[in-house]
Design a protein around this nucleic acid. Structure first.
Lengths: 202, 202
DNA sequence: CCATTTTTGTAGTGTTTGATACACAAATAG
DNA sequence: CTATTTGTGTATCAAACACTACAAAAATGG
């Protein structure tokens, strides 16, 4: 039972994916409604009727990004047998994602709203919270490694999480600045190689 | 001989410094002319007469930032006796700068224009070039270390430069997201501790 | 003094922004 | 069929944007 009135002439999820790409590439404020409606193939009243506002559309696009792109990170943290293997796979999977020619360079969560205007405060805070959540999930994976014995008990899990989060965020910027896969891999492997010293007591 | 006409009623460098802080905090597009003129204590015709345009003002502000804040990085690279000590001091000096309550958090070059609109393409490319230049200066310091014997000859200078640049860029984002000095120092010290593995042959 | 030069404050310019009013189109309910 | 409900396209809205025309103000040169 698809409701009573006139049916929607576009696919909501396809339009959302296209909006996600525009926000990913230009950021929240850098993406104009004209950019969005053109990419989505609809007019602004349809956008507002289906998504509410530019900010709500952005939040849905971020959630959609988390479910698709972010899934690789969560999967690696969940499925790899050790904390070291998990964080190594997170870095390597993101290198592959960052240079994928089918999508914009780097991580949307990192790049879509670093600076802030008064009118985009809510959006910025939301992304900052998501970045902190990523770091927290890194930290929890290290704590799990300590509990399971594959990470030294003297390791500082918060420090390890912050370190790998910083490397990953830096890789986002470098890939947006044009770094190729070899350069990003070199950074990732340097961070992987540093595992023993980073997890040592400080 | 201060020229013939009516003298300028404001100090050009003071106004430039205030504009720099606004751009540092809000980014190029996030800083409106109203924000700028309010902070600088002048009206828009004075701004245009003294600086030409918003983009030219931004470029002057970036140059001013490089001469003041960026000076610490260049000084460390120049004056520290070894490549390791130089990059360690770069990270530590930037931790101190990033949490200085007198200025916005993080690095202006990293945060002022990560995303791009069509109308700010020139500005974004300019900052990307400056970020690459920082990485290049890291790389050159490592190459000097190899030449002077304090870095293993088998080290990949480009990889080392990219790695420390990524860590520093990630620290900018984390400090903008509210990380305190202890958290940033932990990241910096983790990267410093990784020196031997990062400079080892790969 | 007067002429010239440059800066200042007021008050705009045209354009782009995010968001809508409204009439028409296309579906279902009865 | 008619009534109701919902989506679409056109044509726009007010506000904010970067920028500037213009005349009064404040300095120097002769």
């Amino acid at each position: 039972m698809p409701g009573r009135g006139r049916p929607r002439a576009f696919d909501r999820e396809t339009a959302l994916t296209r909006a996600m790409v525009v926000f990913w590439e230009h950021g929240y404020e850098g993406a104009s409604l004209t950019d969005l409606t053109t990419a989505m193939g609809i007019n602004s009243p349809s956008l507002y009727s289906a998504f509410g506002s530019k900010e709500q559309l952005f939040r849905e696009a971020v959630a959609h990004y988390g479910e698709t792109e972010g899934g690789h990170t969560e999967k690696a943290l969940r499925e790899q047998p050790t904390a070291r293997a998990a964080l190594a796979e997170v870095l390597r999977a993101n290198v592959r994602a960052y240079v994928d020619p089918a999508t914009p360079r780097g991580c949307m969560i990192v790049l879509a709203a670093t600076t802030y205007t008064d009118r985009s405060e809510g959006v910025r805070d939301h992304l900052a919270e998501m970045r902190r959540a990523t770091e927290q999930s890194f930290r929890e994976r290290v704590e799990r490694g300590i509990a399971e014995g594959d990470v030294p008990g003297s390791a500082d899990a918060a420090k390890v999480g912050a370190f790998y989060n910083a490397v990953l965020q830096g890789m986002s910027i470098q890939s947006r600045d044009g770094a190729d896969e070899a350069a990003l891999s070199a950074v990732a492997e340097a961070a992987v190689a540093a595992w023993d010293t980073v997890t040592a007591a400080s």
